[in-house]
């Protein structure tokens, strides 16, 4: 599904230049659950942003579903992104002025889904995630775990083939964190590809494969225990 080859990203300011990603190459297959780990500043988030087409690589190739998209412009990337990718952030990134229902509905609006269809799909996903009684509340009225579940719901509502999660449990306590990880595993089991950036070895253990980054390079890649056990 994803094929990276010699991907490089450089950040420049007036005075210095720092290489965030240095000649990264790897592949992710449909249905995989991949964790990306590494210390702060190793390029995890940059990698995720490029995978999510929020950012453009400096050089190298990025093939998504068989198409080379590394040099696509903003508009083209946006088109692919909104059809195929869902995002989950550490700090949830819900819009404060919108209710739970409206937050989840938002990607459907941008995908030009009509309103009755939207209502059906949002209701469905709210049920599934177990926050239907909160549907008219605003994000501030929810606990962190609930907020992240809303964010997950928002990422899922368009039925994306790829979910990108940036430390999804980083702001949550262990029990809420586990709830979210369970949710992600269930998703993966139903066929959705997941790429997750995490600091937590515990979270990474839920995935099939872990890629370790250091200073913008891949230092190791290993199948995780759980998936080995599964095999």
């Amino acid at each position: 599904m994803i094929k990276l080859k010699n991907l490089t990203k450089v950040y420049r300011t007036e005075e210095l230049e720092s290489t965030a990603l240095n000649q990264i190459s790897f592949e992710i297959n449909q249905g995989e659950f991949v964790s990306i780990m590494g210390p702060s500043g190793c390029g995890k988030s940059t990698l995720l942003n490029i995978l999510g087409m929020l950012d453009k690589p400096e050089s190298g190739s990025y093939e998504f579903l068989g198409k080379e998209i590394a040099q696509y412009n903003e508009k083209q990337r946006s088109e692919i992104r909104k059809k195929n990718i869902g995002f989950i952030f550490q700090n949830f990134n819900l819009i404060d002025e919108l209710t739970v229902f409206e937050n989840i509905e938002l990607p459907l609006i941008y995908n030009k889904i009509n309103s009755s269809e939207r209502k059906k799909r949002v209701d469905e996903i709210i049920q599934k995630i177990g926050i239907s009684h909160r549907s008219n509340h605003y994000p501030q009225q929810l606990s962190g775990g609930q907020q992240q579940r809303v964010a997950v719901a928002r990422a899922l509502v368009t039925n994306p083939s790829l979910i990108l999660a940036d430390e999804p449990t980083g702001n949550l306590d262990t029990s809420h964190g586990n709830e979210v990880m369970d949710l992600l595993c269930k998703l993966n089991e139903s066929g959705t590809t997941i790429v997750m950036v995490t600091h937590s070895a515990h979270d990474a253990s839920f995935s099939n494969r872990t890629i370790n980054l250091l200073d913008g390079k891949i230092v190791s890649e290993k199948e995780s225990k759980l998936s080995q056990a599964a095999v």
Partner: peptide, 16 residues
Amino acid sequence: TKEIGIRKVLGASVSQ
């Protein structure tokens, strides 16, 4: 800014 960022990630176009 943040809201605009979120909306863009979720697929909002420049004109929207």
